[in-house]
Computed example of a mutant assay.
Amino acid sequence: MSSSDIFIGEVIGTAVLILLGGGVVAAVVLKRSKAQNAGWLAITFGWGFAVMTAVYMTGSLSGAHLNPAVTVGIAIKDGDWKNVPVYFAGQLLGAMIGAALVWIAYYGQFHAHLTDREIVGDPTEKAIEGPHDEARSHAGPVLGVFSTGPEIRNVWQNLATEILGTLVLVLAVLTQGLNDSGKGLGVIGGLMVALVVVGIGLSLGGPTGYAINPARDLGPRIVHALLPLPNKGGSDWGYAWIPVAGPLIGGALAAGIYNIAFA
């Protein structure tokens, strides 16, 4: 694979991943969506199908890592770091593009949700209440369309949850999902990894929303900060390092376990 193939494949694949994954969250969360309140099962299966679609679409170009934690795991397994920066750049750019496409697809729903008085409160009350107003506290879940956040804010628990979820994902990739070259996901591996992502969401997604992918969280969080969404609330940058560091640690640990137990 050439560097250009890797970059293009990761941009397209990660953009599709976030478009479909972020799209199912928007469908479930936002007002005036036909799928509003469809629930956690819809979100977990939607993300699984997003992974499967993106993998099959771009596997032949880049190996469809679509996740810096997967890239790190494969690099540690093989001892080959040459293309890691190219993968990272493509994944982050693709995630940002995908998040912007979610905003375009759900533009009317974002506007309806973030201007609804039941959600954001009365603008006159906002002026009285000051910086910690109802709009900030009630509109905050919209950030969940773009990135993850904990239900209980506990640094060690949140970090551990992201490490464990990503460890399971990357170990599954390394043991079951790679193609013949060992550089990316194979045909059967794409389906298997998609089902693993569903399983992680159902089993370990409750505490933090299971980022298990630094680009998936950081890229859309940047887009959330930049988009002109009314009453959108903050982008929670104080938490943002956890869904980046946790998956990278989990991916590295998975590669270490693989090299000790399976290689």
Rank of each mutant, 00 (worst) to 15 (best):
E129A: 01
S60M: 12
G189Q: 02
V196W: 04
V25R: 07
T175H: 03
G23N: 09
W47R: 02
T175W: 05
L226Y: 09
S62R: 03
V25G: 04
L185S: 02
Y239D: 04
G59H: 12
A215Q: 03
S137M: 13
M57Y: 00
M57L: 15
A160W: 02
T115V: 06
L174S: 10
H224M: 01
I97M: 02
G59C: 10
I249H: 02
P247W: 14
I257A: 10
L41D: 10
T58L: 01
W81T: 01
T124H: 14
L41C: 10
V84W: 14
A139H: 07
D122W: 09
A240T: 03
L159F: 08
D80T: 06
P150G: 00
H113I: 02
A255K: 00
A42N: 05
G189N: 07
I12H: 11
V11S: 11
E129V: 01
G98H: 07
I119Q: 11
K34R: 13
P68R: 06
A50D: 07
W156T: 13
Q36L: 04
E151F: 11
Y106Q: 13
A69M: 06
G9R: 00
I152D: 01
L93R: 06
T124D: 14
I18H: 08
V223F: 13
G182R: 12
P247M: 14
A105T: 15
P247Q: 10
V84I: 04
G9N: 05
M1K: 06
A194K: 10
